[in-house]
Write a protein that binds this DNA or RNA. Sequence first.
DNA 1: ATAAAGTTTAACCAAACAGTTAAAAACAAA
DNA 2: TTTGTTTTTAACTGTTTGGTTAAACTTTAT
Lengths: 212, 212
Amino acid sequence: MTKKKEQMAEGQDTEKKILAAARRVFHRRGFAGARMQEIADEAMINKALLHYYFRSKEQLFEHVFREAIGYTLPMVMQTLSSEVPLEEKIEKFVHSYLDMLTEHPYIPAFVLHEINTEPGRLLSMLPIGQISECDIPGVLARQIDVAASEGRIRAIPPRQFITSLISLCVFPFAARPLLQIVLSMQGEEEFAAFIQERKKTLVPFILNALRP
Amino acid sequence: MTKKKEQMAEGQDTEKKILAAARRVFHRRGFAGARMQEIADEAMINKALLHYYFRSKEQLFEHVFREAIGYTLPMVMQTLSSEVPLEEKIEKFVHSYLDMLTEHPYIPAFVLHEINTEPGRLLSMLPIGQISECDIPGVLARQIDVAASEGRIRAIPPRQFITSLISLCVFPFAARPLLQIVLSMQGEEEFAAFIQERKKTLVPFILNALRP
DNA sequence: ATAAAGTTTAACCAAACAGTTAAAAACAAA
DNA sequence: TTTGTTTTTAACTGTTTGGTTAAACTTTAT
């Protein structure tokens, strides 16, 4: 039985090696630009074995795409639609989102490109229930209303606020190559430092923006 | 001579038809996903004529890509590095940027994807002189310093401020398909209304964020 | 030892694709 | 009419690509 586990572990190991390679290749090239050969090379196996594990490019891509959406969307939805006080929620959101993106910095550009070239994929992946279930604009609208009537914040259209919150966190990762040029931060570490700095300045920035 | 002009006009007409088609196809599919046949179809000509005007896919793409960069980067650089008072500059930037993006809504996702898959293209397009010439962080750093010492605004790292400014304007266009689902605004007009609303709320949002 | 699953090798197929070619047709200019 | 340019047609080339196949080899489990 321990041996069976090892066998499974071996099999899962190559499967994971393949998925890790596919992730890297799809993330930097997109579906259309990715080559099965490149994925096989990066996983240090051959094309035959690649098709032995995953029947087609489409199937392999779907794994990677679902995974990318899975990393991001549920977290955003849960955090934003939870019943935490608004100010606390903002801080929590910014920190956990920036941390997650630091670990998966290529997800934004990847997802943005794929949902623009094939918006249908998104719709087919998200059962409409999931979205109406956790109604972000609804929850936030109420929180904003309450906080505004208490004089804690200025009123602001919820969808504008949500958009700004996400924009401020995600965009730097999607536009990284551009920002690195315009802001003269070429190195890996310089960008990491920039994101750490952002974690500190963004929360005050947003809270201040909401101040009455 | 009028006839020669007409002939030229004819020639420029098909060239423009081709470029317009190439723009649409490249913008929605990216370089790797675009097909020369699809561009020819969309321009309502045949593939032979396409290669008669533009030798290769690479060449045609470069036109479209340079054009996209040309629409955006110079405007950003000029607006942000100009010597207009900070508050006025913010308003000017948000309005002209959102207006421009409304006319070219597919540029953000297109450019973001291409610079991520081939960062070299950007570097080769921007002679380093152009960037160091109009030193955005430098100019803004001074403006922020002055305004902060006068007590008009809070201090904020210039590169964080620049990033936020751009994020808040560009991201909604790059993430449009996602936002339309999450925020329940499916129609074309609904999104347009959202952007118009954004033009009004974004300036107060940013100015407030900077308030001491 | 034997069977089963995992892995490699190498050749192969069919489709998609960028790009070419040459001849004919359409068109406008002189 | 003649001349030159633009456009079409349609077949074609060469390469890349996703995917397959079959046989051999390796590893692990029983």
